[in-house]
């Protein structure tokens, strides 16, 4: 009888403790509900702001293309059409811009999309299930080694001065924050690129359990790859490079 009583009292005590816990959580919840309503409003506001900024970006890009064309046409208008030296100089400048990655280009290629493991759990999933800077660099190298002539990561053109590295949970590319999924575009020999991607041992391994990294590659015709956007930073990108004289250049 006494044993039963103790059991019942114990059960009631446990129930009361849990009730107390729930009640306190509930009050905290009620208090934070006002914040949550504010949160929803802030999310809505941020979404609208983002859409607006995306539209502004599109217009800025269109303006840039028009201005660039205008400047180019203007140079051909102002130079002496009979002066071969001047024409050659303009041609050289256009060619240099092209090989430096400063022009938007189009061609047949591949789009590779990589993403972290779905519902990644830091407690049970291996760290390799997350996409890091090295995973992206690895893919860029793989594509270049297989003949890619232009590459971009989340629409940021990879040029000589491009740096890809992790800062906290985001990957910085060309000094811009990028978030997964990472879309790597490459224009190059499609069959060779596809074969290299399909047979790559690292990504074959990462797609399997326990890593389960999301990976896909698709061949695309007339793929457009952006120009290197941050024109203003070129001066900074070559800040420490002094032109070497012929006398200083080592013989190969």
């Amino acid at each position: 009888m006494t044993k039963n009583k103790i059991l019942i009292q114990l059960a009631i005590t446990i129930i009361l403790i849990i009730s107390g816990f729930i009640l306190s959580r509930h009050f905290t919840q009620i208090r934070s509900e006002m914040d949550s309503t504010l949160n929803l409003a802030a999310i809505q506001e941020a979404r609208l702001e983002l859409v607006e900024l995306q539209n502004v970006r599109k217009n800025l890009e269109i303006d840039y293309k028009n201005l660039r064309k205008e400047l180019n046409d203007l140079w051909y208008e102002v130079i002496d059409a009979d002066d071969d030296e001047q024409l050659e100089l303009l041609y050289k400048l256009a060619r240099t811009r092209e090989i430096a990655g400063l022009t938007e280009v189009k061609g047949n290629g591949v789009i590779v999309t990589i993403n972290d493991k779905e519902n990644y759990d830091p407690l049970s999933d291996p760290i390799q299930s997350l996409i890091h800077d090295q995973n992206i660099i690895y893919l860029v190298d793989l594509l270049v080694d297989n003949g890619a002539q232009a590459v971009s990561v989340n629409d940021l053109r990879i040029v000589n001065s491009s740096q890809i590295f992790c800062i906290g949970t985001t990957v910085l590319c060309n000094n811009q924050r990028t978030i997964p999924p990472y879309e790597i575009k490459a224009i190059g020999p499609q069959d060779q690129l596809k074969a290299a991607l399909d047979a790559d041992p690292l990504y074959l391994k990462l797609q399997k359990e326990p890593y389960s990294v999301r990976f896909s590659s698709v061949l695309v015709n007339d793929l457009v790859i952006n120009e290197y956007e941050t024109i203003g930073t070129i001066t900074k990108d070559i800040e420490y490079l002094k032109i070497a004289t012929d006398y200083e250049i080592p013989k190969k």
């Binding site: 240099t96 040029v159 490079l241 070497a244």
Partner: peptide, 10 residues
């Protein structure tokens, strides 16, 4: 220089 066509030093 940016494109890597020119020899540089420093």
């Amino acid at each position: 220089v940016f494109a890597g066509l020119t020899a540089v030093q420093n």
